[in-house]
Simulated scan of single mutants.
Amino acid sequence: MPLQRLAAMLLAVGMMFGFAMSASAEAPNNEPFKPVQVFDVKAGKVVKSVPNDKQFQSFAHSWIGSVTGLAPQLKNDDSCSYVYRIPLEKPATIKVNGIKVAAEDVFLFYCDEKPPLLLVFDEQRRPYLLLFSADIKPFIQKIGLP
Rank of each mutant, 00 (worst) to 15 (best):
R5N: 11
R5A: 10
L6V: 03
A7Y: 11
A8R: 08
A8I: 00
M9V: 08
M9I: 07
M9N: 15
L11C: 12
A12G: 15
A12Q: 14
V13N: 00
M16Y: 10
G18L: 04
F19L: 14
F19K: 15
S22C: 08
S24A: 00
E26F: 11
A27V: 15
A27Y: 13
A27F: 11
A27R: 13
P28G: 07
N29F: 09
P32D: 13
K34M: 10
P35N: 05
V36D: 04
Q37R: 06
V38D: 01
D40W: 03
V41L: 06
V41W: 04
K42G: 09
A43H: 07
K45R: 11
V47E: 09
V47W: 09
V47T: 10
S49I: 04
S49C: 04
V50M: 07
V50F: 09
V50N: 09
V50A: 06
P51K: 00
P51V: 05
P51G: 06
N52L: 06
N52C: 08
F56V: 00
Q57R: 04
Q57C: 02
S58A: 08
F59P: 01
F59C: 06
H61C: 14
S62D: 14
I64P: 02
G69C: 01
L70N: 11
L70D: 11
L70P: 06
A71H: 12
A71K: 14
Q73N: 07
Q73W: 06
K75E: 15
K75P: 15
K75A: 15
D77C: 01
D77A: 01
D78L: 13
D78H: 15
S79V: 15
Y82R: 01
V83D: 07
V83N: 05
R85F: 02
I86D: 00
I86F: 05
P87G: 03
L88I: 12
L88R: 12
K90H: 14
K90R: 14
P91M: 05
T93F: 01
T93K: 02
K95T: 13
K95G: 10
V96G: 01
I99W: 00
I99F: 09
K100Y: 08
K100L: 05
A102S: 14
A102N: 14
A103Y: 05
A103H: 05
E104M: 09
E104Y: 13
V106G: 05
L108K: 04
Y110K: 10
Y110N: 09
C111T: 10
K114P: 10
P115H: 09
P116S: 13
L117W: 11
L118F: 01
L118Q: 01
L118N: 05
L118P: 01
L119G: 02
V120W: 00
F121T: 05
R126C: 09
P127C: 00
Y128Q: 03
L130R: 03
L131T: 15
F132Y: 04
S133W: 01
S133L: 08
F139K: 02
F139C: 06
Q141M: 06
I143W: 11
I143A: 10
G144D: 12
L145R: 12
